[in-house]
Amino acid sequence: MFASNLTSRVRIVAILSSVTLLMAACGSSESASDADESDRLTVVTTVAPITSIAANIIGDRADIVGLVPEGTNSHTFEPSPSAAEVLSEGDAIFINGLQLEEPTKRLALAARGDDVPLVELGDLTIEPDEYRYDFSFPESEGKPNPHLWTDPTLVKVYADIIRDTMTDVDPSGSDHYDENYEAFAALVDEFDEAVTAALDTVPVGNRKLVTYHDAYAYFADTYGWTVVGAIQPSDFGEPTPSEVVALIEQIEAESVPAIFGSEVFPSAVLEQVANETGASYIDDLRDDDLPGAPGEVDHSWLGLMKFNFVTMTEALGGDATDLATFEVRDVAPDEATYPQ
């Protein structure tokens, strides 16, 4: 009887011990999971094209949070106070720079940790003697045209800077960032070839851009085009009557066949200019508002630029058939947050 009771007690103790160990193991697993979650990196970006480029390099090694809503004027965007909390949690912050997002930059400088890099991509990509100034970005005001991301060759530099920064922040991910960068750079090179082939079909005399918001100064330098003018003044208000008359005269003198409005900046003035000059008016060129919705394949930097270059080529008398079939794709999962 005693032996039987002893055996039963030993079994009970063994069972209880197993349960205790199992619970401890589960508890350890949950703690490790929680720790992994708390150790996950956060990267903060500004405009959507930069968010997309960063997502291609970073992939799933960090949570990527964009701050500037798509479809807004990124030049005048004022971040809400809640953005300070997002910035304070960032392990790296990427902005375009070249004075595009000054309110966001000021908030980031105040909110970030002492060891968190605030990277101004544009300032690291070109030197001051390469800055472009124009009607919308006059040199007298000291603010260069900041739209480097419309030039694929400069986007590769953006991606390289993001790769190097993330390697410093997250050394264990070095191979991951290198692999994604190499794949993205190859994709951009492939796209650049397709763009060049399409643009070469545009008659030489038509390779001229008149836009509402001048986002193509660096693109024009690289691909040998001319930016005839832009109608949006540097204060983002409406142009004066004399400025409109001067642009009309320039368009007529240059025989510009088409002028481009902005999806973000609709302009009755530019439509009037088109009517006065007989040029075609295309009103949906995009500066930094990605096509489609987050999660869709075209919602990317590559989708944005494909749309714009196809639109330009066709409107100015070229053949965009091959470019229109170019496969838009990311080289890494894009699960970034894009405010709408």
Rank of each mutant, 00 (worst) to 15 (best):
A55I: 02
A55D: 07
A55M: 01
N56V: 06
I58L: 01
D60W: 00
A62E: 05
L67H: 02
L67I: 15
V68E: 00
P69S: 06
E70S: 07
G71H: 04
G71Y: 05
T72H: 01
T72M: 05
N73R: 03
N73H: 04
N73L: 06
H75C: 10
F77W: 14
E78D: 12
P81W: 11
S82H: 07
A84M: 09
V86C: 05
D91L: 09
A92P: 15
I95Y: 07
G97P: 10
G97I: 10
Q99M: 10
T104W: 08
T104M: 13
K105I: 15
A111N: 10
R112C: 07
G113V: 09
V116T: 15
G122T: 13
D123K: 12
D123N: 15
D123R: 14
L124C: 03
E130C: 12
Y131K: 11
R132F: 15
D134T: 15
S136N: 15
P138K: 03
E139F: 12
E141W: 09
G142R: 01
K143G: 11
K143Q: 15
P144D: 12
L148H: 05
T153C: 05
T153V: 14
T153N: 09
L154P: 08
K156A: 08
V157T: 14
I162M: 04
I162N: 07
R163P: 12
R163C: 11
D164T: 13
D164I: 09
D175G: 02
H176Q: 05
E179F: 04
A186K: 02
A186R: 04
V188G: 05
V188E: 03
